[in-house]
Design a protein around this nucleic acid. Structure first.
Lengths: 240, 240
DNA sequence: CGTCACGTTGACTAATTTCAATAACGGTGG
DNA sequence: CCACCGTTATTGAAATTAGTCAACGTGACG
């Protein structure tokens, strides 16, 4: 029988299960998967879940909260590589060289499920569905990054910002939030770094969208008045 | 005993082995890994190894030749996501949804080793070193893309071009080619797409580097006169 | 030896960054 | 509870970078 604390972190009882875990799994395999997550970790707003250079030990599934990942160079260049929310997996960058190559920072108080990598490897061996799932998660991240490259390489500022908003909305909606409003967890500067723009350009673009009646912006509260217009902005720029 | 044709495509006898395959493998496991590659495929210059939308079946290891990968959107936007050379693995994007999400096009006549994905999955199950290796390959691709995001999001044109040249040189050098010269296999337009610049800017930047005595450019032949200067250009721009 | 794709270069334009000033919050402590 | 301070955000004007449009070369290849 499961102890209360084990039960508390059992994936089989987690409402985020469909986001993190393979779906078509026998009861017996699910029981095994429940041993994947050894600990929950709380991360305070502003703190790092892991940092570049640290030894890689585990992957993390976000239980609650919001993160950014960023790469930095020795000479001080910096790039936000993504914003992560509940159900998403972090730490994949560390596998190749057994050490992390980016920082994961909590943008609000957060909780993550720690999955030791050696355990993932051995369990994958026993549970083929997990092996497939890990491959899919990594492949999904590669495809996501292709999308970011497309954004950074071929879109102008308005297209990038519209694309960014639509992406956040879509992911929040998949988690049961409204499609018509969102609260930004990050600063204009962080958005700018992610989008390859300055914070001023991000701010100006928000203002322009607001003037055009597409969104309403009050600090970090954004209300979407015309999501179709956002889509049109993204698509309009095709052919550069 | 191995037949001539099997032997011909055996990884154990391939001089690119260290690039594609796990290194610390028993003789017995190596024998198994030799069954991974079922076919060699020749791809003509300009032809696609796979295209976006096609069913995903296999990963490919480049045996010879040079590829580009690109993503395209329905509305005609396009972004080159990478240039691949001997020993590198292509097709990882297809795993997540069982279909390819980008095009892989040969920039010169090429030969690839086809590794059916279902075979990779079942063999990974038997040979842990292969499982680890697949994870590392995917993680490496994620880290590579972080680097591209840094380039696209934070570098100016000269920094991007310098960074591009250094990256190519380093990878070619790892394959036994000179550090002081290279032949570009792609057009200025393809370089521009990859770097988020127009072909004119790429051309002008090459010309400027040549004027400054950093490189010599004759069509697609590039000679590196001062690689330290290239490194300096990349590092100089830190702090945007 | 002509044609076509590729590459270079110039002049001009547009987009974004930079610099600067001001405003609005949010958290903290009196 | 309110005032203050530092951080975050907005906005304007000038500067800069890269893009666009256009003309011209040049090579490779049939």
């Amino acid at each position: 029988m499961l102890s209360p604390s084990t039960l508390q972190i059992a994936c089989s009882h987690c409402n985020l299960r469909e986001l993190c875990m393979p779906v078509d799994v026998t009861a017996r395999d699910m029981e095994r998967l429940d041993t994947l997550v050894t600990t929950r970790r709380r991360i305070r707003r502003g703190a790092a879940l892991y940092s570049s250079g640290e030894k890689f030990n585990a992957l993390y599934a976000i239980r609650s909260g919001f993160f950014k990942t960023r790469v930095t160079t020795p000479d001080g260049r910096e790039q936000v590589t993504g914003f992560q929310m509940a159900g998403e997996i972090m730490g994949l960058d560390g596998i190749v060289a057994n050490q992390h190559t980016c920082d994961a920072l909590a943008l609000e108080d957060a909780e993550v499920c720690e999955m030791p990598y050696d355990r993932i490897e051995s369990l994958s061996h026993e549970v083929p569905a997990l092996q497939t799932h890990v491959h899919k998660i990594m492949s999904r991240e590669i495809v996501r990054e292709h999308g970011v490259m497309l954004l950074l390489g071929s879109m102008r500022a308005e297209e990038r910002v519209a694309s960014f908003l639509l992406n956040l909305l879509q992911r929040l909606h998949a988690r049961g939030f409204s499609e018509a409003a969102l609260v930004l967890r990050m600063t204009r500067e962080e958005i700018g770094s992610y989008l390859g723009l300055t914070l001023e350009t991000v701010s100006r673009t928000f203002s322009k969208f607001a003037e055009d009646g597409i969104i309403e912006v009050k600090h970090r509260q954004v209300r979407i008045l015309d999501s179709q217009a956002l889509r049109a902005i993204v698509n309009a720029g095709a052919g550069r």
